[in-house]
Amino acid sequence: MIELQHIAKSFEVGGQPIFALRDTSESIQAGEYVAIVGPSGSGKSTLLNIIGCLLRPSEGAYLFNGEDVSQLEDRALSHVRQHQIGFIFQSFHLVPRLTALENVALPMVFAGIASSERQLRAKDVLESVGLSDRAHHRPNQLSVGQRQRVVIARAIIMQPAVLLADEPTGNLDTHSGQHIMELLESLNAKGLTLLVVTHDPNVARRANRVIVLADGQIVKHVKGEEMSAGSMPFV
């Protein structure tokens, strides 16, 4: 499903290219649950953003379902994001003036889905994450755990093929984090490909496999179960 071929990403700083990612190749199959770990500045978020079509690689090819999306124009990339990829952010990124229901329905606005259908689908998805009684609450009226569940509902509303989560439990207490991970795993169990960037070894060890990044390169692959609780392989 996801095929990265010799991907590199550089940013110009003071006229000099700084590589955030170099010669990275990886293959992720549909339905996999993959954790991406590594120290700060190792290129985890850059990798996730390239996979999420939010960044274009400077070099290499990125095949999504066999199509080289690294060469697509902006509109086509937007279409891939809209229909194939769901994003879960550490800091939620909910629109504060919209209700939970409206936030969940937001991706459908730009897909041209009728308002009545948006309402129905958003209600269903909110119910599936256990928030049907919070549909008309604004983000500031929800707990952080509830906010993250709204974000998950928003991420899956377009029935994407891949769910990308950047530190999904980073802002949550242990109990809420546990619930969120169970929710994400239940979605993965239904066939959704799940990629999680995390610093938390307890999250990483739940994945099928773990990609370890250091200095912009993949340095190791381990199985989730092989990770020891409480410690990261790069530490």
Partner: peptide
């Protein structure tokens, strides 16, 4: 600005 980034991540085009 953040909201604009979010909308783009959710699939909004520059035109949107």
């Amino acid at each position: 600005t953040e909201e604009i980034g979010l909308l783009r991540a959710l699939g909004a085009t520059r035109g949107n």
